[in-house]
Amino acid sequence: MYPKISDQLFMSIDSGDEKAAGIEYKSRVADLVEDSMLIEIPLQEGTGTTKRLYVGDELSVYFISEGGTKNYFNTYVLGFKEDVIRMVRIRKPDADMITTVQRRSFFRVNAELELAVKTESMTRFVARTDDVGGGGLSFFCDANYAVKEGEALSCWILVPYKNGNLEHVPFKGEVVRVNKVENGRLHSMVKFTSISDMERQKLIRYCFERQMDFRNR
């Protein structure tokens, strides 16, 4: 499903600057053509400041369709069009490159990512994830870092993208299940209880890239 003319788009600009990449902008679809979209100049959420884009800028975008479904895709700036207002031309993604995500319906992918954990008792440790998704994750840790079902955790996860960028994604979660596995380690499943839409989008983008890698093997 593609956005329609006048639909709002919410986006972040892929950047090596972690702070800049975390800023959310909004725009509106002005026109759709065969292989591109024309959008209004993006405005920063909260301040209304315009964002100057350049040809080649990579964008992580989502739009909301009927029923509150969020639809995510990645694209880049192709050029500009001068009309009554200046518009930005971005590449129209292939239909199968748009990830449709409904509330409580996030797919997960196997991934060994670095996870920093802080427990309710202020114990801190670094673990490796087993899988990751937009709604939660699971991780392995040594038994001496005993986490309990129902425990609240404060974490960040290091997310690498195919273009070489790295993102630190913070979230709060709740342990929903803990199992002992080989070598006495613990396997803990966590659901997100507090994560911003933009941070969740970063994880969904990573999952989508991983899914495409699996399909192409």
Rank of each mutant, 00 (worst) to 15 (best):
V84T: 15
V88I: 15
E82A: 11
G56S: 09
V147T: 03
K148N: 10
N110D: 14
E114Q: 15
D83V: 07
D96C: 06
T123A: 12
R89C: 03
R124E: 14
A116H: 15
S105D: 02
Y76V: 05
T69Q: 11
K51C: 14
A116K: 14
V77I: 07
E112S: 15
L78G: 02
K92Y: 03
D94A: 09
L53E: 03
N74M: 13
G136L: 01
R89L: 04
G136P: 04
S36M: 07
I41T: 13
D83K: 10
T47V: 11
G134A: 07
E82S: 09
G46W: 06
I90H: 00
E120W: 04
M122I: 05
V126M: 15
V101A: 04
E66G: 08
V147I: 15
S65P: 05
G48T: 10
M97A: 13
D142R: 12
T100F: 08
S65W: 05
G46I: 05
C141V: 15
F80K: 09
V147P: 00
T123I: 14
G134W: 02
G56L: 06
G133I: 06
A143F: 08
K51M: 15
Y62E: 00
Q44S: 09
V84S: 07
I85N: 12
M37K: 05
D130I: 13
T75G: 06
K118I: 12
V88R: 03
I90N: 00
E112D: 14
F140Q: 07
V101H: 08
N74I: 06
G135H: 06
A146Y: 08
P42A: 06
T75R: 08
F80M: 04
L38S: 05
D131E: 12
Q102V: 12
A95C: 01
R104Y: 04
T47Y: 02
F139E: 02
V126P: 07
L38T: 01
I41M: 13
L115C: 07
N110Q: 12
A116Y: 14
Y145M: 05
E45M: 14
P93F: 02
V61L: 02
L115E: 01
Q44I: 11
A111S: 14
A116V: 12
V109Q: 13
Y62Q: 01
C141A: 13
E34K: 15
L78W: 02
V147E: 00
G79I: 05
K148I: 03
R104A: 01
V132N: 01
V117Y: 10
V126W: 12
I64E: 09
R86Y: 09
A143Q: 08
N144A: 04
V88S: 02
R104I: 00
S65H: 04
T47L: 04
K81V: 09
S65Q: 11
V77H: 01
N71Y: 03
G135F: 05
E40W: 10
E112Q: 14
Y72V: 09
E120N: 09
R52A: 10
E120I: 06
E66F: 08
T123W: 07
G67K: 12
V126H: 14
G136R: 05
D131N: 15
I64S: 05
V77S: 02
G56T: 08
Y76R: 10
R91V: 15
Y145T: 06
S60Y: 02
T50I: 14
I98Y: 01
K148R: 10
I85H: 06
R108I: 00
F106C: 00
L113F: 06
K70H: 12
T69P: 00
V147Q: 01
